[in-house]
């Protein structure tokens, strides 16, 4: 692809803290390379803001390899931007053209309160995992591959569900700020495997209860979550979660 440079207008959400009122500020950036990542473009702007004595834009990031789930941001109404199956750090500036105005907002949900600017707290996800997203046995050393026989199809589905990086784009994309795609991935990947079997029922009931406590909405099956998920987690996991939950509720003690 041909390299090019561009000048852009950025409308960025600025908010000093969780308790203060935020608003949009407009910045112009120039000479941005089409080969930069979106976060590098913000790095360029931040370096300029620091040099000018201003406050740099706070945003979450860590691995910048698309696997850690730290980066967030809603770019022109799309969590992680316009590219399918891509995190913000893997979104490159060739997605935009010279003269574009880009609106950058934080993930918005009551359960994801803003910490500063584009950073939100996604601790609610950690607490959902703490409610049951684990296997509480002493696993010891790594066992030999194929020591526990697992059907290929189940192993594939479990692996696909386990690809969830917990970034929260599903919540940000959902009109109800529902965390069902995230939860369904976490429940599915353990429910499909023999290691998850002993705690299967308790796990789903506890995790749903925690999800409700955190203030996420219900799933109304618009499937915007699947469309925005950087790991392309399937909404069929949500059907599995519903099945697991119904089964646990009707047969549980």
């Amino acid at each position: 692809m041909q390299h090019y440079t561009m000048n852009l207008n950025l409308k960025v959400w600025r908010q000093k803290s969780g308790t203060s009122t935020g608003g949009f500020e407009t910045y112009s950036v120039s000479n941005i390379s089409s080969e930069m990542s979106f976060l590098e473009m913000i790095d360029v702007l931040n370096e300029r803001l620091i040099k000018e004595g201003g406050d740099p834009i706070a945003f979450d990031h860590d691995c910048r390899e698309g696997i850690c789930g730290m980066c967030s941001m809603v770019i022109d109404g799309r969590p992680h931007g316009p590219w399918k199956g891509t995190t913000t750090c893997q979104l490159h500036m060739r997605a935009f053209k010279d003269g574009d105005t880009i609106t950058i907002e934080p993930f918005r949900a009551n359960a994801f309160p803003v910490i500063k600017d584009l950073m939100v707290s996604r601790s609610a996800f950690d607490r959902i995992i703490q409610a049951g997203g684990y296997v509480s046995v002493n696993t010891g050393n790594a066992v030999d591959g194929n020591a526990i026989p697992i059907e290929k199809e189940k192993a594939d589905d479990a692996f696909a569900a386990a690809a969830c990086i917990g970034c929260g784009a599903c919540v940000a994309a959902c009109k109800n700020a529902s965390a069902m795609l995230f939860l369904s991935a976490k429940v599915s990947h353990l429910a499909l495997l023999p290691q998850g079997e002993p705690e299967r029922k308790q796990r789903v009931v506890s995790m749903v209860a925690q999800m409700d406590k955190e203030g996420f909405g219900s799933c109304t099956n618009t499937y915007a979550c699947e469309a925005e998920c950087p790991k392309e987690i399937s909404v069929l996991n949500i059907a599995r979660l519903n099945r697991e939950y119904l089964n646990a509720s009707l047969s549980g003690s």
Binding site: R78, T103, G217
Partner: peptide, 27 residues
């Protein structure tokens, strides 16, 4: 449910994805 779900996002987005990621009738 509609009322409850709407209350889960107190501050709204300035720009939304609209029909790019979901069908209008599902919303």
């Amino acid at each position: 449910l509609e009322w409850l779900n709407r209350s889960k996002r107190a501050s709204r987005y300035a720009v939304t994805a609209g029909n790019k990621t979901s069908k209008w009738y599902s919303r």
